[in-house]
Nucleic acid binder design. Structure first.
Length: 264
DNA sequence: ATGGCTACGTACCGTAGA
C-alpha cells in the first residue's frame, strides 16, 4: 500500500490540460498540486479532472498565478492564500486530504519569482516568504503529517543549479532566498529529494530559450518537503523529465514522492 | 550579445516568467 504525491508547475492549464491529462493517465498519483494555472476558478476544467477520477480544490486567478490540489477522496479545511496577509495574487492552497496513510495536511504553493535583488518584486518575495513561514509553522503545530510542495523559485543550494558560480547572487540564488528555505527546514521539514542518493545535475525547470533542456541548463526549484512524522514513510522521490520532452511542454517537470508503511 | 522561448492581454508589442 502506497500513496504518491506530485507537484507540477503547468504554466497555464488553459494550454497544458492535454499534457496534464496524458501525464495523469501514465502517473495515477493520489494527489497532484499544480501551480500557475493562469485561469479563474470558473474556467477550471473540473469535468475533465473528474473524468480521470479526481476532485479538485481550486484557487484560481486570470492571467497569472493560480493553484489547485487534485485528490482522490475527501478534502476539508481548505484555506486559500496566507492567513493574515492580504495578497492580491493566488499563490497558496492548503487542505487536509484523507489517504490510506491517514490524513495529510497539504500546502501547495507558487512562490514569488522576485525578478532581481533590489526590485519591488524581490521585496515582495521576501515579505511573502515571511508570511509563508508563519503559515507553515502554524500548520505543523496543528497537524503531524504535513507536506509543503510547489514551485519554490529558490535553489536551496549550489547543487540545485546548473551554474551556481555564474549565477551566484542572482534571482533564485541569493542568500536571502536560501535563508528563507533554510528557515523552513528549521521547522523540521525535510527536502524529500535529498533523502536519497540522486544523480548530479538533476533539475526541475529549464529555460525555454538557449536550448536549456537539451543542454540540461536547469534549476531544481520545485520541491516536496515533508514533516518528521512522514519521514519514516518516505520511500522515494524523483523528478519526471518525460513531459518536458513532449510537444508544447511546461518549462517545469513534475516532482513526485511515494509514501508507504515501512514494513509493507 | 544578457538575447534566444512561451503565455497573456488586446496586441500586432509590452509584460512576465525564472
Amino acid at each position: 500500500m502506497s500513496v504518491t504525491l506530485a507537484t507540477w508547475n503547468v504554466n497555464s492549464l488553459n494550454v497544458r490540460l492535454p499534457q496534464v491529462q496524458q501525464w495523469l493517465q501514465a502517473n495515477p498519483v493520489d494527489v497532484l498540486g499544480m501551480q500557475e494555472l493562469k485561469l479563474p476558478d470558473e474556467r477550471f476544467p473540473l469535468d475533465a479532472v473528474r473524468e480521470q477520477g479526481y476532485e479538485a480544490e481550486v484557487f484560481g486567478q486570470a492571467t497569472y498565478n493560480g493553484v489547485a490540489l487534485l485528490h482522490r477522496s475527501q478534502a476539508r479545511d481548505v484555506v486559500r492564500n496566507l492567513p493574515g496577509y492580504a495578497d492580491a495574487q493566488s499563490r497558496v492552497i492548503t487542505a487536509t486530504v484523507a489517504t490510506p496513510l491517514g490524513d495529510i495536511r497539504l500546502i501547495n504553493a507558487y512562490f514569488v519569482n522576485g525578478q532581481a535583488p533590489g526590485t519591488d518584486k524581490f521585496a515582495y518575495k521576501n515579505e511573502w516568504l515571511t508570511h509563508l513561514h508563519a503559515h507553515v509553522q502554524a500548520q505543523m503545530q496543528a497537524h503531524a503529517q504535513v507536506v509543503l510542495m510547489g514551485d519554490f523559485n529558490i535553489t536551496a543550494e549550489d547543487a540545485d543549479s546548473w551554474d551556481p558560480d555564474g549565477l551566484r547572487g542572482t534571482i533564485h540564488h541569493t542568500p536571502e532566498e536560501r535563508q528563507a528555505f533554510a528557515r523552513l527546514l528549521e521547522l523540521g521539514l525535510v527536502d524529500a529529494f535529498r533523502q536519497f542518493p540522486q544523480p548530479e545535475k538533476t533539475f526541475s525547470w529549464w529555460d525555454y530559450r538557449m536550448l536549456g533542456f537539451q543542454k540540461n541548463r536547469g534549476l531544481r526549484i520545485d520541491y516536496i518537503l515533508i514533516s518528521p512524522a512522514l519521514r519514516p514513510l518516505l520511500r522515494r522521490c524523483w523528478i519526471d523529465r518525460a513531459p518536458r520532452k513532449w510537444p508544447k511542454p511546461s518549462d517545469h517537470a513534475p516532482v513526485l514522492i511515494e509514501l508507504g508503511q515501512p514494513d509493507s
